[in-house]
Write a protein that binds this DNA or RNA. Structure first.
Length: 486
RNA sequence: GCGGGCGUAGUGUAGGGGUUAUCACAGGAGCUUCCCAAGCUCUUGACCCGGGUUCAAAUCCCGGCGCCCGCACCA
């Protein structure tokens, strides 16, 4: 089994996530987050949110249902409902436009019925095997909400970004008219994937954390760059280089200050949630793979089972003017007495892909075959587990008492008294709990406990009072112990 | 969506026209246990769904759904 398969197996067995609606046969493209998965995902979201709030970003929450007019302006209606054809013989699928052109027809047809009439009257051949194509169909990538009676058509959003763009003026007023301004939105997006696969990596309903950074177009400046870590960068024009973002910007590998800044920031976020730095790279999209709205995009990719998977896309886009043109509502901001329509640098995070990537990066099999999730302590579903070494001599009661007290500071503390101590350590290792707090005979007399660190399995003895007073994460004695493990 | 492979307890599996459907791990109850899935007793739990063939289908056939691999798609 490769890491992906092992993580999927563990995720289902321990309750991180599993396919939705399985008792009805399943529905591909949808996954449920289980008890541990919800906690883990929330921690990823919290990390992302705190990273942007501390950056001075502001947040918004807008509906998942969006009127057609918005997506007409954004270009999604036009770009995401292609007419397509399939060869009746070799089943090769192409855009209608492509096969038409290949057969010498320059007509542009945008209607399914018209397309079928045209194909019935004219000979259009498969570009691969030459068989005549007779049918076209509409390939919709957005979910349309049916049966609208009084309003126009409505769609489920494929990205959360438009909810920010249409509120730009209100947001900027709240932000007291300043630029640059970063607005973040967390929410569900919906994409009608033709063939969803790979668990959380490609779902029809996904969790997105999108940030729209509005900058002055001729500068595209956010903040002064710091050198930061060396990051793997794959520019569209050349081979991979390893460079900090400041020198990459200075050398012109990255085109703007804001793009460089948020590449570095994204790198930090991915590292903080538990993706190893050597498994992160930023790849600049080639011109032919750019989204319709973007002129330059760098994807953050994570190395999972020997293939690079896009986890975050950082796009240089310019949607505001389109909304101004469509609605007549001004989107310009006064900068030094000039009216400026901001440009946008958009880091868009696939939250589910971050969860999957961190699990696959954390997964580790010990020599004895036991599995461990080496999740960063702040990201792990539980921070610690309280375990009585044995269930007699009052140790179980003492442990329960300590558990109750710890919960006052930190709700993410587990209690387990069933099975041998080794079995309980193994259980916690498998769900990524960084610390196990064990009570033994000395605990009763000395008011101390042992703390076992997950990755090293080493233990230290600290006072119960310290745990109660300082909690687990950030506890000075645990900190000190950790340093001895390096 | 196409082609190929595969669907048996929570997980991993054995088997396969008539069986009480195999085994292990996990789970639950208890005993034992002073530090890494130990041991003992008891115990919960499965043939993806529908149709067909047959006296009889988990087993054979067809369809659906799901998963995996390739192709295509991936704003």
């Amino acid at each position: 089994m490769n890491v992906y398969e092992q993580v999927i197996e563990l995720a289902k067995r321990r309750g991180f996530f599993w396919p939705s609606y399985s008792i009805y046969g399943g529905e591909s493209g949808f996954y449920d987050y289980g008890p541990l998965g919800v906690l883990l995902k929330d921690n990823v979201i919290r990390t992302w949110k705190e990273a942007y709030v501390s950056e001075g970003g502001i947040m918004i929450d807008t509906p998942v249902i969006v009127p057609e007019s918005v997506f007409r302006t954004s270009g999604h209606i036009e770009k995401f409902s292609d007419l397509a054809t399939e060869c009746p013989k070799c089943h090769n699928r192409e855009k209608l436009e492509t096969v038409m052109k290949a057969s010498g027809n320059e007509n542009v047809i945008n209607d399914e019925n018209q397309a079928n009439e045209f194909l019935a009257a004219n000979t259009v051949k498969c570009v691969k095997c030459g068989t005549r194509i007779t049918k076209a169909f509409e390939s919709k990538q957005m979910f349309k909400i049916p049966d609208q009676v009084n309003s126009g058509n409505l769609y489920l959003r494929p990205e959360t970004a438009q909810g920010i763009f249409v509120n730009f003026k209100l947001l900027n007023t709240v932000f007291r008219g300043k630029l640059p301004m970063a607005v973040a939105q967390l929410g569900k997006g919906f994409r009608n994937e033709i063939s969803p696969r790979q668990g959380l990596l490609r779902m029809k309903e996904l969790n997105m954390g999108e940030v729209e950074v509005f900058v002055i177009p001729d500068k595209k400046y956010w903040k002064e760059l710091i050198a930061g870590d060396e990051i793997k960068l794959v520019p569209k024009t050349g081979p991979e280089v390893s460079s900090d973002v400041r020198s990459a910007f200075e050398k012109g590998i990255i085109s703007s200050n804001a793009m460089a800044y948020f590449i570095n920031k994204t790198y930090d976020i991915l590292k903080n949630v538990g993706i190893k730095h050597e498994n992160i790279r930023f790849r600049q999209q080639h011109d032919d793979e750019l989204a319709h709205y973007s002129v330059d995009t760098w994807d953050a990719e994570a190395l999972l089972d020997d293939s690079w998977v896009e986890v975050v896309g950082i796009a240089d886009r310019n949607d505001l003017r389109k909304h101004q043109d469509a609605t007549g509502e001004s989107v310009s901001v006064k900068v030094d007495d000039a009216d400026v329509i901001p440009s946008i640098i958009e880091p868009a995070y696939g939250i589910d892909r971050m969860v999957m990537s961190l699990l696959m990066n954390s997964f580790y099999t010990r020599e004895n075959g036991f599995k461990v999730l080496r999740i960063p302590e702040k990201i792990a579903p539980y921070h610690a587990a309280v375990l009585p070494l044995v269930n007699k001599d009052g140790l179980d009661l003492l442990a329960k008492e300590l558990h109750e007290k710890l919960l006052l500071n930190d709700p993410y503390v587990y209690f387990d008294q069933s099975g041998s101590i080794g079995k309980r350590y193994a259980r916690q290792d498998e769900i990524g709990t960084p610390y196990c707090i064990t009570l033994d005979h000395d605990s009763a007399t000395e008011k101390t406990v042992t703390v076992r660190e997950r990755d090293s399995t080493k233990q230290t003895r600290i006072s119960m009072d310290s745990l109660i007073e300082y909690g687990i994460i950030g506890n000075p004695e645990i900190r000190k112990f950790r340093e001895t493990l390096q």
